[in-house]
Simulated scan of single mutants.
Amino acid sequence: MADNMEIAQVNLHHAAAASAVISSRFTAEKLGTLLIQEPWVYRGEVQGLKTEVNKVIWHLSSERPRTCIVVRSNIDFFCISEFLTQDLVAVQARDTEGKDFVLASAYFPGETATAPPEAVERLVEHCRLHKLPLIIGCDANAHHTEWGSSDCNVRVSILPKISSTGKPSYVGAL
């Protein structure tokens, strides 16, 4: 059973230095889980996040995974393989009270016209059917001038859609 279930979300923008910083914070702050988008990848492998106190989960057969989850080794979890893609990683974990919940790290490709991706919609439905709380950390590629972007895009409207379909939670970025 995990002593610490703190969860953080971050987009690393494929940077080795950002990976080193978040890995150091994960260890120093004794975080439980990291939901990561755009990890540093070299030769099809997520780099810079593995330590002796954690496990890193990503879609191993993807040449360029755009998401991964880092889980502290003392947390009871398993990967939900039907929701394991280049752009989505989901794990089912157990909290300190013995209750199961689902953690997901998702990347919504900016080049696609629709969002959220079908795999995320299926994950939300899976959690609703099995009455599992869902925590999603994602890069939705949504832009809005109120967030400091230079423009607005239609992606802004997808966040209420996800939050109204099964009550997932959102994790703030570091």
Rank of each mutant, 00 (worst) to 15 (best):
G98P: 08
L35S: 07
V102L: 03
S105K: 00
K167Y: 15
G148I: 02
I7H: 00
G98Y: 08
L103F: 07
L123W: 06
N141D: 05
Q92P: 04
I75T: 10
I7E: 01
N74S: 15
L35C: 09
V102A: 02
A93M: 09
E63K: 12
L12P: 01
A2F: 08
C152T: 08
H126Q: 06
V21Q: 12
L49H: 01
L174Q: 09
V70R: 03
A15G: 06
S24R: 11
L129T: 13
K30L: 15
N153I: 07
G166D: 11
G48H: 09
I57N: 02
S24L: 08
G110V: 09
V21G: 10
A18T: 08
Q86T: 10
R25S: 15
V89C: 07
F26E: 09
L134S: 04
S73Q: 13
H14A: 15
L88Y: 00
T96D: 11
A16N: 07
P117K: 07
S169V: 13
S150P: 09
T51G: 04
V120W: 01
L12T: 01
F77M: 13
T67W: 06
A15R: 03
A90M: 05
N11L: 00
D100S: 11
K167F: 13
V46W: 09
L103K: 05
C79M: 10
C152R: 04
W58L: 02
V91Q: 00
N54Q: 10
G98C: 07
D95H: 12
N54Y: 14
F108E: 03
R25P: 03
L132M: 09
A104G: 06
A93C: 12
